[in-house]
Computed example of a mutant assay.
Amino acid sequence: MKNRKRIYTSISIFLLFTILFACQNTNQGGRNFQPQSLEQTNYSQEGDNDYLDDQPQLVGGSERDVREPHPVSNNKLQKEYPNIVVLHGSPMKNQVALTFDDGPDTRFTPQVLDVLAKHDVKATFFLIGSRAKAHKEITKRIHDEGHAIGNHTYWHPNLPKEDLGRLHWELTETEQVIMGITGFKPRLFRSPYGALNDEMVKMLGEKNNTVIGWNVDSLDWKQQGADIISDNVLSNVGFGSIILMHDGGDWSMDLSGTAQSLNKIISKLKKDGAKFVTVPELIGVPEAK
Rank of each mutant, 00 (worst) to 15 (best):
V112C: 03
Y193K: 01
I243S: 01
K271M: 13
D144N: 14
E68W: 09
K122V: 10
R6L: 15
L15P: 05
L188A: 07
T9L: 14
T139A: 08
R67Q: 12
D247Y: 07
T41S: 15
A22F: 15
Q24Y: 15
H152I: 02
Y51K: 10
K5R: 14
E80I: 00
L127G: 09
E39A: 06
A288D: 08
K268Y: 14
I19E: 02
V279Y: 02
N25S: 06
Q57T: 14
S37G: 13
A226T: 09
E162H: 07
L116N: 03
N215H: 01
L87F: 00
N197F: 02
V112R: 01
T9N: 13
Q45R: 14
L255C: 05
K140G: 08
F276N: 01
G273K: 03
N263L: 02
G150K: 06
I142N: 01
F189A: 03
Q78L: 06
I7H: 10
L58E: 13
K122G: 03
L127F: 12
D198N: 10
G146H: 08
W214T: 04
K5S: 12
I178V: 12
N215Y: 03
L234Y: 11
D163F: 08
Q24F: 15
G60K: 11
H88Y: 13
Q28K: 13
D120H: 14
D272A: 10
D53H: 14
G183W: 06
L113E: 08
G238Q: 15
P82M: 04
V216H: 00
I11V: 15
Q223R: 06
M200I: 06
D227P: 03
L159Y: 07
L87E: 00
M253R: 14
T124Q: 04
W169G: 04
K140W: 06
E68C: 04
L58Q: 13
N83P: 02
Y81R: 02
Y43M: 13
L255F: 06
Q28P: 00
Q78R: 10
L116D: 03
H152D: 00
G47V: 00
V279C: 04
I265F: 10
E281I: 04
G89Q: 02
K202Y: 08
H168C: 08
D50R: 11
H70S: 12
S130Y: 14
H119N: 09
L282Q: 02
N208R: 07
R107D: 08
L15I: 11
D48W: 11
N3I: 10
I128M: 15
G249R: 03
D101Y: 04
V115S: 03
K264A: 14
V201N: 02
R131K: 15
K133Q: 15
T26L: 13
A22S: 14
L127N: 10
M92C: 05
L188Y: 04
T172P: 00
G60T: 09
S261R: 05
P71T: 02
K136S: 15
K268Q: 15
D163K: 13
K271F: 14
P71G: 06
I149L: 02
K275Y: 11
I13M: 10
F108D: 06
T106M: 10
T174H: 02
F184C: 08
